[in-house]
Design a protein around this nucleic acid. Structure first.
Length: 422
DNA sequence: TCTGGGGTCCTAGGACCC
DNA sequence: TCTGGGGTCCTAGGACCC
């Protein structure tokens, strides 16, 4: 048996936890670069804001209803997420952290001690006590059904935020009410195709013939069908599998037109990606760079391109990765374009620095690499300041916009909230 | 003026091998 | 006139997730 616990309006709720004056008021949180809406409080949902709404398009409505707007504050959300996950881990034999605001819990054995619904309520209570955040809990024999139960727990308030879907009769009753596009694993494209085949509810999908689905779609959707009909195909993943790739990319705060700015950005992203790679204790051989103009600027030609370069032996030394990234950029940079976004991707990972050299390779590994990188990361994680390579530049005019950022309440001393007694 | 970032998995098709 | 069959590996692109 699985439970899926998921924090309601996570980012928006994190903001209101430290601003009690905002309770009951509409709050929205914007994506990086203050681009579009990515989280909404219940009140903001009622006003009709949708995830993905470009901010500049809704500014008038925001002003009219005095909506409280925040830039995303990932330092705060990540820390709050940790507190929630720690609490969940205390309550179940195993927990899989699925995203920043949701986790699957293994409920094996729980029903011997107490009703599953009561267990769901206990989870809510404890998380609320620790973090002032509210979670919805869905319980079912497969992950896909647990997702569905969680969806129902949030949609219908009379459930009290907990739905136990262990009984097949209840599963079918709920699935008959749920449109197929709300099933986990069914996106816009597939739901359109399913609708054309006359499958419009989750129940109809659950009752389809798995080989038929496999033939017309894929093994992935076949698994979804089986999971909906109660056959568990997707197991708990307690330990995060090692990453296949690492991406560091950002939209620019302004359109970048000059080579210098784009190169600074690429250097910065390459450094960040290398840092992540070392955090994973991995070494990479493949480095790709992409740059693109805005797909929304219809009156200018679109340009997007990507180049890939390799290292002879795997490395996680920032100097190696920055060098290759710059070479890649030079192969695809076109002057005269107004660039909107760029990024660096790392792939082809190895768990040790030295791989087999080819017979005639004359490459000599850097002698001081490990030590230097350790010092670099050590300083940057110490909280005392940052050091970086000169290639990033100092002014960094291309940096993303975060005009409405809230304080780092839980991760920076200077930003600690102060409580005054009356 | 202004439209996020970071991932995974699967499939089809091409290159190449014997 | 007639031009195999079976397999692996890699890559690009599509679909999905939060």
């Amino acid at each position: 048996m699985f439970a899926l616990a998921d924090v309601n309006s996570f980012y928006a709720s994190c903001e209101t936890v430290f601003r009690p004056d905002l309770t009951g008021k509409p709050v929205i949180v914007l994506s990086n670069n203050d681009g579009c809406v990515i989280a909404r409080s219940a009140e903001a949902k009622k006003l009709g804001f949708k995830t993905g709404n470009p901010f500049f398009e809704i500014k008038d409505v925001v002003r009219k209803h005095r909506v409280n707007v925040f830039s995303s504050n990932y330092a705060l959300y990540a820390d709050m997420s940790n507190r929630v996950m720690t609490t969940l881990e205390e309550m179940a034999p195993s927990v899989e952290i699925y995203s920043i605001d949701e986790a699957f819990m293994n409920l094996t054995g729980v029903s011997n001690c107490m009703s599953l619904e009561q267990f769901g309520r206990d989870i809510r209570e404890r998380v609320r006590q620790r973090t002032k955040l509210t979670v919805g809990v869905g319980i079912a024999p497969t992950k896909t059904l647990a997702k569905l139960a969680n969806h129902a727990a949030k949609k219908w308030t009379q459930t009290g935020g907990v739905v136990d879907l262990s009984s097949p009769a209840r599963q079918r009753k709920l699935m008959a009410l749920v449109p197929v596009e709300e099933v986990w694993g069914v996106g816009r494209r597939i739901s359109k195709k399913l609708n054309a085949l006359g499958i419009s509810t989750a129940l109809q999908l659950a009752d389809s013939h798995p080989p038929f689905i496999r033939k017309h779609f894929s093994v992935v959707l076949e698994r979804t069908v089986r999971e909906l009909s109660g056959e568990s195909c997707i197991a708990m993943e307690e330990f995060a599998p090692t990453k296949q790739e690492i991406i560091s990319s950002r939209s620019f705060g302004y359109r970048a037109t000059d080579y210098q700015s784009v190169r600074e950005a690429i250097c910065a992203y390459a450094e960040r990606a290398s840092e992540k790679l070392r955090g994973e204790r991995q070494y990479c051989k493949k480095i790709s760079v992409f740059i693109k103009t805005s797909p929304f600027d219809l009156d200018e030609p679109y340009y997007g391109n990507q180049a890939t370069g390799g290292l002879t032996i795997p490395s996680n030394d920032t100097r190696d990765i920055v060098r290759v990234a710059k070479e890649c950029l030079d192969r695809i940079f076109l002057p005269g374009m107004r660039y909107q976004k760029a990024g660096v991707m790392l792939g082809d990972f190895y768990s040790a620095g030295v791989a087999q050299l080819a017979l005639f390779d004359e490459y000599k590994p850097r002698a001081n690499s490990e030590a230097l990188m350790r010092v670099l990361d050590g300083i940057n994680h110490s909280g005392k300041g940052k050091i970086w390579f000169a290639g990033q530049g100092i002014q960094q005019a291309w940096q993303m916009k975060r005009a409405l950022l809230s304080p780092a309440y839980t991760t920076r001393y200077a930003d600690l909230p102060i409580v005054k007694a009356k």
